[in-house]
């Protein structure tokens, strides 16, 4: 009897954990695939199909450390553009990225794609997070 209960409990718990995980995974995949389309139409011309950038004019999106360090500012950069001297992959850039005109959910999607492609593994960048970050753009 005891054994049966334990077995049932075990099954229930694993099932719950499993479905939870796959919900998360599903959400991530939704962000990622829409983000991929957005990237192709809105970012790829400048940053390249492999996120390689363009010489010293446009920075690559392959610098995981840069992306991680500046994670909370990326949404503002994509929304309002960026015109600051920055260091990416150890090289200085001082160009100008125009404002993207993307909605917060699209920013979340494209950032999820960028941060989990080109050799980056930084996980989901949710729309809730983007909304919070957009409140404190300067």
């Amino acid at each position: 009897m005891k054994f049966k209960i334990i077995a049932i409990l075990f099954i229930a718990v694993t099932a719950a954990v499993y479905s939870c995980q796959s919900d998360e995974k599903l959400e991530f995949m939704r962000y990622y695939t829409t983000g991929q389309e957005l990237y192709k139409t809105r970012c790829q011309n400048c940053h390249g199909a492999q996120g390689e950038g363009l010489a010293a004019l446009i920075p690559p999106l392959t610098d995981s450390i840069y992306l991680k360090t500046n994670r909370n500012k990326l949404a503002c950069y994509v929304k309002n553009g960026l015109k600051l001297p920055i260091m990416v992959n150890g090289k200085p850039f001082n160009g100008e990225m125009p404002p993207s005109g993307l909605a917060p959910v699209e920013i979340a999607q494209v950032l999820t794609y960028v941060q989990n492609n080109f050799g980056n593994h930084l996980g989901l960048h949710s729309v809730e997070k983007v909304n919070k970050e957009l409140e404190s753009c300067n």
Binding site: N45, C46, G48, L54, A55, L57, I58, E96, P98
Partner: peptide
């Protein structure tokens, strides 16, 4: 030089 659309693609290829 300030072209935001196709020039970066063109010059990535021209390189």
């Amino acid at each position: 030089t300030s072209c935001p659309s196709i020039c970066p693609i063109m010059h990535r290829n021209m390189l």
